[in-house]
Structures are given as structure tokens and as C-alpha cells.
Simulated scan of single mutants.
Amino acid sequence: MHPLYPSPSSAPARPLRVALVTESFLPQVNGVTNSVCRVADHLRARGHEALILAPGTGPATYAGFPVVRLPSVPLPGYRTFAVGLPSRRLVMAALRAFAPDVVHLASPVLLGNAAVEVARPLALPTVAVYQTDLPGFAARHGVPGAEALWPLLRQIHAAVDRTLVPSSATRRALAGHGFPRLSLWQRGVDTERFHPRHRDEELRRRLAPDGEVLVGYIGRLSKDKRVDLLAHAARLRGARLVVVGDGPDRARLRRRIPSAVFTGQRTGTDLSRLYAALDVFVHTGADETFCQAIQEALASGVPVVAPAAGGPLDLVEHEGNGLLFDPASVRELRVALGRLIHNGALRRRMAAAARPAVESRTWEVVGDQLLDHYRSVIAPQQVEPRVPVRN
């Protein structure tokens, strides 16, 4: 256990058996996949056992744990995204065979709902992680009846023992829709992988050969992220826009912002160097429940411009480590970017405040908090979760 958060019990905790049921997993790379991978890594590091149930085709193991692949269909308009089908018989067989202590539901929808229905008669404790603003995602992609998703999501989360939410804004929103038993569980960040020391001056010279201020977006390229708003950033004097990531909107965005550098999807050391090379990180999506990319940028020592909505409200201290703008105002976005692009002293001050804001939010700390959430639904009278990290 992390020394800042001593174990609530003096008795050594026995290893847990955790079934991770996720709506998205490798080879798809997104926030849900990344969080599930981090949870699995932490379970392995702490000596627990896990089984991963995921839709579509892909790796049969991860972190030494088996991955049970379940039937899926491609999402209309986003065919590289596999939507898990409610395969109750297969989920029942997998859970019976594995006999978990707790079922972890990652951003549950159809597959997650099936797992909840299976877990209930088996008397298995359940912890759901609310990560994707599905109604907002659907609305941005033009899916009819997006608001009708709220009753389905409320039904799923009302049936679990605890729902973990990544931000205070998400907790307020879900409480307003009648979701019960909500607890805050924020995301961790790899403070070694994302660090200012990865800044590479040669990379900067290649990206900005005339010494421009590097403004970067890193994330999925899809309509719900509103990346096309960055066309306004590309027109600002003295700036060079870098777009890192992939998705169904990539071709349209390249036409919309021809002056930007599009790197495609990057991982590992390449991604670390790209974050650290930036002078300003900008995020445009207005439906984020958390926004891990903001946290990674801050850990890399980069000030952030982000919408004053959802998860960014917990991460960006306005006028401290970055600037917030009204998500409905393109003018405010332009003004915020212009201030940081044209004021080097302001950039340096906010860059100095960036990493301290998140360096205590390691995956080790938040992973141990998650283990306490598991134990508290397994035996509610025996354990209370650690207080979430706050800055």
C-alpha cells in the first residue's frame, strides 16, 4: 500500500479475484482501454488475479491475465470501434468458471448490462466505472434519441453496488439524473513517462522550423472532440499547430486545417517526447468526464487551455496551470490561446505550476484506492476507501 494511505486493517489483505468487464479493449486505444490496462497492471503488481471480458478480436492475454473475447458489431459511422453485444450465456460461463470476488464494469452499456444481470443471481459484488459521456458522444455523432440513453444508463448503475466517477462535475451531473451510490475515483498519471525531461529540442525544430510556439492537441480525432475548432488556433500569428492521434475525422480535419502537422497515432517514447515538446496543450472536447490527455500534458510541464466543463474543471486551475474557456465561445478559445502564444512570461509561469498540480496522482495511489473500493463492496463493514487525491 502507498505510505500516504495506510491499510485500514492491520491484518494482511488476501489476494482478490477481479473480473474486468469492459466495453472497449486492445487493439482499440481510447480512455476506457487505457484505464482497464492500468487497472490490470496494478492488480498484477499487487499480486491479485484478474479475468478480462472484452468485445471484438484482439490479444488473448494482457499482463498475464486471460482475455475472453465476446461477440461485437462495428459502431455505425465509426467502424473501427467494436460494440460489445449482450452475450449473457458467455458472460455467465466465464464468471462461473473464474469465480471472482468482485466484478469491475468499465463504462458499462450493452455488455456491461449483461454482466450486471448475470452477477446479480450469482450474488457477486459489482463496481461500475462511469467514464464515457455516452449521451454527449451520441449527440455529437448525430445519433437520434441520444437523450434516451439516460434511462438505460441509470438502470445499469442503479443495479450495481457502487459507481465510481472521475470528476466532481460528473458526480453532480449523474446525481441530477438520479444515479445512486456515487463515489469519486480520479485517474492516475504515469509521472515518469510524462515528464518535462522528455523535451527534445531537435523534435521541436522539426515541428516548428521558424521557432513558432507549439500548440498541440493529443487525442481521438472524432466529431465529439470538436477538433475542427483548432482551425482558429492555426491562424494565430506565431503559432504552429500539432495534432496527434487518429480517428474517423482525420481526413476531414487535414482538409480543414492544412497548415497543421498531423502525426497520426503515437505511443510510448514518441508520445512522451511530443507532449514535452509542446509549449501549450489545447483540448476542445466539451463532454469529457475526466480528460486524461490534460493530466498527461500537465505532468509533462505544459500549460493547458480547455473548456470550462466536465472533467477539466478538476484539473485546470484557471490562471494557475492553464486557462479555461466557455465551451460555447470560439472567441474565448482564441483569446485564451492568444494570451499564451504571445506572452512568454505567462507561459513559463503556468508551465511551472503544471506538474506540481498532478505529480501526486500516480497510478499506484489511485490503484490502491480502487482496491479499497473493491473490498468495501465485498465486505462493507470492514473497510472504507482512501480519501481521493486532491490538489
Results as ranks from 00 to 15, higher is better:
H2K: 07
P8V: 03
P15N: 05
A19C: 11
L20G: 03
E23L: 00
S24A: 15
F25Y: 10
L26G: 04
Q28E: 15
N34Y: 10
C37L: 15
H42Q: 13
H42V: 05
A45G: 14
L51A: 08
L53W: 03
T61R: 14
A63G: 01
R69G: 03
P71E: 05
P71F: 10
P74E: 07
G77C: 05
V83N: 04
V83C: 11
M92N: 08
L95K: 09
A97F: 08
F98K: 05
H104S: 12
A106N: 15
L110D: 04
L111F: 03
A114M: 05
A114Y: 02
A114W: 03
E117N: 10
V129F: 13
Y130R: 01
Y130S: 06
T132F: 01
A139W: 09
H141T: 06
G145Y: 04
E147A: 12
L149G: 04
W150M: 08
P151M: 06
Q155D: 11
V160Q: 04
D161P: 10
S168K: 11
T170M: 13
T170S: 11
R172K: 13
L174H: 07
L174F: 08
H177F: 02
L184K: 02
W185D: 01
R187L: 14
E192I: 15
P196T: 05
R197Y: 00
R204D: 02
P209C: 01
P209F: 02
D210K: 15
E212L: 11
V215W: 10
G216M: 15
Y217V: 06
I218P: 02
K223C: 09
V227F: 13
V227D: 10
L229V: 04
L230G: 12
G238E: 06
G238D: 08
D246A: 14
P248S: 15
S259W: 07
A260Y: 12
F262R: 06
T267W: 00
T269G: 00
D270T: 00
A276Q: 01
A277K: 03
D279A: 05
V280C: 08
T289C: 07
P307K: 10
P307Q: 11
A309K: 07
G311T: 07
P312W: 12
P312I: 07
D314N: 10
N321S: 09
L323I: 13
L323R: 10
P327F: 13
A328S: 15
V330P: 13
R334I: 14
V335L: 13
A336T: 07
L337S: 11
R339F: 00
G344D: 14
R348W: 00
R349G: 08
A351I: 01
A352S: 08
A352Y: 04
A353Q: 06
R355S: 01
R355H: 03
A357C: 04
V358D: 01
W363I: 03
W363K: 01
G367K: 09
G367C: 09
L370Y: 02
Y374Q: 03
R375I: 01
V383G: 01
E384Y: 06
E384V: 15
